[in-house]
């Protein structure tokens, strides 16, 4: 039996724990043993984003000390995985931990990537009656090059029809503090995404990225829209995982 170490980023831990629970449920259903290091905090992305590389470096060091010995690390958050793969080696360039950072980055997987590319599983036995559209989150599509994997998983969900989403690869406008500081631009972007979602005729929009999930659901909730956005893990795990 495979064994994976869960990396549940802070946004999921605090604001959408059901995504984390859904991740565990899917993996266990597939017979994968999960481990969760209770000491984990944050990958450091917010600090790096804001220009506080020194604090992001602290987060990177800590992450490596916690996860360094794990064979496989899986996360339901593509942008955090991207942070580790793309920026940890750069942050630790002049640090003795550099080789560890490079080595670690090859063992971190985004959830759908792990399921499809590593486990070679496309049907997780999920069921959902309705139409779904897939939002290609920036760091997942362009950062990690993941697009096929979530779609093939969706295609195997019983009862589900995948409908195309116009401009699926366009950013939803989250970008961390961007969404607050430049809210007037971000709002136009999230509106576009939601309009395209509405026009797609999908009942639910799927993303693999908690940032997009919070942004789009935050907007839909304010607009009192009935439609909602689900993380892929939530759809795959089943209805009891589809709350916050």
């Amino acid at each position: 039996m495979s064994k994976v170490s869960l990396f549940i980023p802070c946004l999921v831990d605090m604001f959408a724990p059901s995504i984390g629970m859904a991740t565990v449920a899917i993996l266990e259903r597939l017979g994968v043993e999960t481990v969760y290091h209770d000491e984990q905090t944050c990958c450091g992305q917010p600090a790096l984003n804001a220009g506080y590389g020194n604090y992001a470096l602290e987060a990177a060091r800590r992450f490596i000390s916690i996860f360094g010995d794990d064979e496989v690390i899986v996360s339901p958050a593509g942008s955090c995985v991207y942070m580790i793969k793309r920026y940890y080696p750069e942050l630790l360039e002049d640090d003795p931990l550099y080789p560890m950072a490079v080595d670690l980055s090859s063992r971190v997987y985004e959830l759908s990537q792990y399921l499809v590319d590593v486990l070679d599983i496309t049907d997780v036995g999920a069921q959902y009656e309705g139409k779904v559209a897939y939002h290609e989150s920036c760091h997942i599509l362009r950062g990690l090059g993941i697009s096929r994997q979530p779609k093939v998983l969706l295609s195997k969900v019983k009862g589900t029809e995948i409908v195309p989403l116009f401009a699926a690869e366009m950013c939803c406008g989250f970008g961390g503090e961007f969404a607050d500081r430049y809210h007037y631009i971000s709002e136009e972007m999230v509106k576009d995404k939601v309009n395209n979602f509405q026009a797609s005729g999908a009942d639910v929009l799927i993303t693999c990225e908690p940032g997009c999930y919070l942004n789009l659901n935050g907007f839909l909730h304010r607009q009192q829209e009935n439609k909602k956005v689900l993380h892929l893990a939530q759809l795959l795990a089943g209805p009891e995982f589809q709350g916050l």
Binding site: R181, H183, S186, L214, N217, G218, H221, R222, Q223
Partner: peptide, 9 residues
């Protein structure tokens, strides 16, 4: 800015 047109969990 965020809360102008969006809620947050």
């Amino acid at each position: 800015g965020w809360f102008k047109e969006r809620d947050f969990p």
